[in-house]
Design a protein around this nucleic acid. Structure first.
Length: 563
RNA sequence: UGCCGGGUCGUCUAAUGGCAGGACAACGCCCUUUGGAGGCGUCUGUAGAGGUUCGACUCCUCUCCCGGCAGCCA
């Protein structure tokens, strides 16, 4: 079916939506055409849940040799902005999809929608209602009780036509009148109880400016837009299931082309929130630095964090598409990323929390250049030279004065291999006499054990990373953790479970000197630590790296269970 | 309590009347100059009760559980 994504394992992409399309193709329902659409409302940034929908819609178009339209559902000028339109286009493009010249706006159809409304009025199927919002709510009835008909329901067609035209002409104040479909106030489906088609709203629209003072509601705009674009399969999320009878009613009464609405379950990801309302609140309340904060599940946040478009597409294939409610383990997203990055990222060495090591038996001035492999998964990525000298930095975590049994790293009197270099032995520990803090380690190296020479049979359990003190560059590293402490933050106090440790900033990290030329967004694997990328805030004078995701850490597990 | 939809390993998702499979997670082992990567293995599931059938995750009936719907939001 679908093409493999880069070097990532091929996924079976069958799902119930594709089954429906297969069947429609077999019966020639749409003359063999497949035309989907991705219809975001430009009132916020796209998130990983939208990515699922984008991959579904654009993926189907690709696999069925069809088309996928990008359509902005911009029917509510009070919440929508150009900034969002631009960010949405950037995100879809970045994910690897293109919509060619099929960029549409519901607002492009305002005139046609108006004509359709007039047609419905002429058929006696829509009327101008003057009930206040409160009265409309009262007349709607409840989930268990039927509604009451509006006293304006049986106006003449002429009067409705006249009033509707005057609504458009701006003769009535905001909210004073609505155009409603005349369906059934006692329908068990509340969406069918004379739904509002137009409201009066004097608000400048990002595309139509002040041309209109009446704006169509979602239900009235969406299906007709699909119809005008000759969409075959209009794929949306489950909460619109109850709207399908209305969707069908409009196109049938209008006698226009009838696309098929299909609903699937939206993505829920553990340890985060996904609603635009809540994401907006995090941004506005300053819990994060912005929509593209690397802790946000937004596309722009994931991008800044260092995620690849391929990994997100791969993730979207792996989670599948179905109708049951779901809660995807964020570990699957992280696994999808590692799977991609492992195969293609350059390995480098970086020490986050430096501990000074002096190699006592190494020549004071000597600098030895060692061979290091750029990516053991891909020989074609070649090798680089690494400077080794008397004074090094290793990770504080890689030394323990009183190590537990399964600690394979350095401790007094034990040996460990320095990656791509020599086996060293810890001879003594220097401490600050006042604080007791370890200030430096004195070690000796075994010249017979240089990496790759095979001149020594010596084996050690552990290999640790390091950088040469005089050949390192300083950097700030930002470590990110999940934004929430609980799997499913919900309810009014959802913010109570924000993880206060979701961001840890470490200064004075030591990177190997090859990183001096790193550009923004460049991705690396810091050996043994994880995948990192250069942040937007970074500059040559002040390098800043984001930890995208850690490597799987067996030791962390052992250490944890040992506690 | 009205209408709509949904219940398959811990989490996702296949099987559409014919061997309940895969992935992630977890656990164990092997391998390893990244405690990475890789390899092998283990664990765990059809909500319940009836029925139809040679045969039911699948079809029928009833029950239970979960989600959505009462914006001039989408």
């Amino acid at each position: 079916m679908s093409e493999p994504i880069n070097n990532l394992p091929e996924q079976k992409t069958s799902n119930f939506v594709r089954d429906i399309i297969d069947e429609d193709l077999k019966t020639n329902k749409y003359d063999g055409r497949v035309n989907t659409r991705f219809p975001p409302e430009p009132n916020g940034y796209l998130h990983i849940g939208h990515a699922k929908s984008i991959c579904l819609n654009f993926g189907i178009a690709r696999d069925y040799n069809g088309m996928c339209n990008l359509r902005f559902d911009d029917t509510n000028p009070s919440k929508e902005e150009v900034e969002y339109v631009e960010s949405i286009k950037e995100d879809v493009r970045w994910l690897g999809f293109s919509w060619g010249n099929r960029e549409y706006y519901a607002s492009d159809y305002f005139e046609q929608l108006y004509e359709y409304a007039v047609a419905l009025i002429k058929k006696g199927l829509a009327y101008v209602c003057e009930l206040t919002p409160e009265q409309i709510r009262e007349h709607r009835g409840t989930l268990t009780a039927p509604g009451k008909e509006s006293p304006f329901r049986n106006r003449s067609i002429e009067e409705n036509l006249n009033l509707f035209e005057r609504m458009r002409n701006g003769e009535f104040p905001d909210g004073s009148k609505t155009l409603r479909a005349k369906i059934d106030m006692s329908s068990p489906n509340i969406n069918m109880r004379d739904p509002i088609m137009y409201r009066i709203l004097r608000e400048s629209h990002h595309r139509t400016g002040d041309k209109w003072c009446i704006y169509p509601m979602y239900d009235w705009a969406h299906g007709q837009s699909d119809s005008l674009e000759k969409i075959t399969h209009s794929i949306c999320t489950l909460e619109f299931e109850d709207h399908r009878p209305l969707y069908d009613w409009f196109v049938e009464k209008l006698g226009i082309y009838h696309p098929q609405q299909i609903e699937f379950a939206r993505l829920n990801l553990s340890y985060t929130v996904m609603s635009k309302r809540r994401l907006l609140q995090l941004v506005e309340d300053g819990n994060v630095s912005g929509w593209d904060d690397p802790r946000m599940p937004t596309i722009s946040g994931l991008r800044r964090r260092g995620y690849t478009p391929e990994s997100i597409r791969y993730f979207a294939e792996r989670i599948g598409v179905a109708k049951r409610e779901n809660m995807i383990d964020v570990a699957l997203l992280e696994d999808s990323l590692r799977e991609d990055l492992n195969k293609r990222s350059l390995r480098v060495m970086a020490v986050l929390k430096p501990l000074k090591v002096v190699i006592d038996n190494f020549h004071d001035e000597k600098v030895e250049m060692l061979d290091a492999t750029n990516n053991p998964e891909d020989e074609s990525m070649g090798k680089r030279k690494l400077p080794f000298s008397k004074i090094l930095y290793i990770e504080q975590d890689d030394f323990m004065e009183n190590p537990p049994k399964k600690f394979f790293r350095l401790s007094p009197g034990t040996e460990v291999r320095l990656r791509y270099a020599y086996i060293i032995k810890c001879e003594s520990v220097s401490k600050d006499p006042k604080t007791g803090e370890i200030t430096e380690l004195h070690c000796t190296y075994d010249p017979e054990t240089r990496s790759g020479t095979g001149t020594s049979q010596k084996k050690v359990k552990g290999t640790i990373h390091w950088v040469s003190a005089n050949h390192s560059v300083n950097a700030e590293v930002r470590l990110y953790d999940r934004l929430f402490k609980i799997e499913n933050p919900s309810g009014d106090d959802w913010k109570a479970s924000i993880n206060p440790e979701s961001l840890t900033i470490i200064k004075n990290c030591k990177l190997e000197q090859s990183l001096i030329n790193a550009k923004k967004q460049d991705r690396y694997q810091f050996e043994r630590l994880g995948y990192f990328c250069v942040d937007y805030d970074s500059s040559p004078a002040n390098i800043i790296c984001n930890r995208t995701v850690t490597l799987k850490d067996t030791w962390a597990k052992i250490a944890k269970t040992g506690e």
